[in-house]
Design a protein around this nucleic acid. Structure first.
Lengths: 203, 203, 203, 203
DNA sequence: AATGAATGAGGCTTCATTCAT
DNA sequence: CATGAATGAAGCCTCATTCAT
């Protein structure tokens, strides 16, 4: 349990600066971004990074945790939406919008991260499964699509646009739309391979 | 100098060993694979790596160049295929199959690689454009899809499956099928964003 | 300034806590014990350590000073003892007992410590010399033994037992006894090397 | 097993330089001597240290291993000596002479070192036990002295003289003589504490 | 031509010390 | 006064690259 005691005003500011700087730096340089660069970008000393995050990995974990939790919150809200199809599309939109930038490999590499991240990821995956189940039941996505499929495809729009030199910030919407069309029942071709096992044992 | 002088027999063998070893190592460990490991895997000394490739980047470039050229050759063959829709799908299948493994970020990072790679990439992009144009004209893909779109989506199936822990080697076929369905005219929804400029000025 | 002004009650308490915590920590972790650990062990903030002791070295010096003074006091008492041989043995017993734990290298490293320590050490050395002189005169130790010899041998029992993994707390007594036997005149073999100069010029 | 392949001429030279430099540096600065300083002293780059010794600890282990093996060899030779008492004294003389300098904490800290060191240490301990047994049987040392005692006392002469500022290089002989007198049966006083368990289970 | 030894820049992390709260 | 946040020097180690053998 992180006994989140209030944190002094300046410390909280630095923590925020660090998370922002790190997110940017990781996005630009990938996971090899150096702690020194992150510190410089945040305008703090290198040592300050380690006061807030014991390890470079912990810093990454903190970022990922924030994003996953935020995304999950959005997803849970959408579980009550009237139109399950629109709800799923909206969820994917939020997901992509939220990370406009290079994806942080957060699904995969997170596997080696902090236990909190793993639990958060499982919660989020659960939510996605529910969203997909509802959408499927309402005929909004094809019957052979699983939650695991959507989880995997979730980051593709950002990934794809990351290759465009000076991409307009909304370009990902184009590819999300294409991919989502591929998930719809209309004109669906049979899939040549079964879906992967759900990433969480219990689903 | 690109003046490919014949190269002694053993040197040629080492070059092949190195390319293979490097491809495997990059695939497994990502771009951070160490030159030492590559050399060991190839069964040669570290110095030999640098005799053949002045720089780690050059080694990567050579791999990428090979793949792009091979892919382009496949694409050019398919330009004569009877069914342009099937031809495009086949091309994407070849592309994904060819790198089964971790994608080498070859489109993007290649941007900073050697000039040969850039030219090869442009040739390949050209071929893709032609394949897409033909497919579009035959109604096999929606009218609002461009060559640039397909180029961007090309790596998505491999990217997506790279997140599955012990993915079966053919899992990418599932996602290529889904994405390709999204490119078809049947049940297409209007796209919310215009396509990016073609990656090569002259297309 | 050595002008020991009275010090507020809580400050005095903190000073005591710090000295105790530091002594323990140094004993367990050696001279590399971190200030942070000492502060935590004392239950105070890191800043408080530096309010009381300008430097980590000063903290060490303060501990050493206390011990030396205490030891010297014991030695001076023993100068009046009836049996000079027993007195010397008792002094060495007190010395070893007092630091049961890892010796703090206090004789040597103290050389670079503050001036107060140096003066205290000189006082203590003086006392040892007197104890040895008396013991020698009474035939309790061999004639070729000097005060400097005893000073050097003084820490050996603790040093020696520091190598025993889970040493019983009194094990040093065994080695003090052996070494002291070596100082006695009975069965003494001639020494192959002259004694070192007295550590203090004026003795 | 260290498949000691011949090692190139220059590499062997550097290895020797490194071991010598490290021994000096450890002796002067203690175990905290920095790798950078060792490299500088040896006249090589920092990286070269790590080519030869994967870890700072491995470097220390190599030094210690050399010393222990040399000492053990000397000890084994002495097992055949005519006078067991003299043999033991000679062994202790060799031991002290061999490390003239600050002891490298080699008995204790070695516990966390490389497995080779541990085995070498056990061999040496065994030898000491045998030397002591023989000496005891011949009445050269008191009956209540064990091998473990001698092992512990072995480094004391060097330890003791390490505190003398500009000690003559043979000063340790004086204290070895004193301590050895303490081990003799003549005029021995009963020991106030039982000996520690032998450091190696099987002895 | 091949090898592997040497190099040193650069990465992560620790910690004594200073300073704002 | 006390606290604990911030700092930056320094330490260990990795690795691409160069160079002697």
């Amino acid at each position: 349990m992180t006994s989140t005691r209030p944190l002094r005003a300046d410390a909280a500011r630095n923590r925020r600066l660090l998370l922002a700087a790190a997110a940017d730096e990781f996005a630009e340089r990938g996971l090899d971004a150096s702690v020194a660069d992150i510190a410089r970008r945040a305008g703090v000393g290198k040592g300050t990074v380690f006061r807030h995050f014991a390890t470079k990995g912990d810093l990454l974990a903190a970022i990922v945790l924030d994003r996953i939790d935020a995304l999950n919150a959005a997803g849970e809200q959408l579980l009550d939406a009237a139109d399950p199809g629109l709800a799923l599309l909206e969820f994917l939109t939020v997901a992509a919008d939220q990370q406009q930038q290079r994806d942080l490999s957060f699904l995969q590499e997170a596997g080696e991260l902090n236990a909190d991240v793993i639990r958060a990821r499982e919660r989020m995956f659960c939510t996605v499964h529910k969203l997909v189940d509802r959408a499927r039941e309402h005929g909004a996505v094809r019957v052979d699509i699983t939650g695991a499929d959507v989880i995997l495809l979730m980051c593709a729009p950002n990934y794809v646009t990351s290759y465009v030199p000076d991409a307009p910030p909304d370009l990902w919407r184009r590819y999300l739309s294409i991919i989502f069309d591929g998930l719809r029942p209309q004109g669906a071709h049979p899939l040549p391979h079964p879906p992967p096992a759900a990433p969480i044992p219990g689903i």
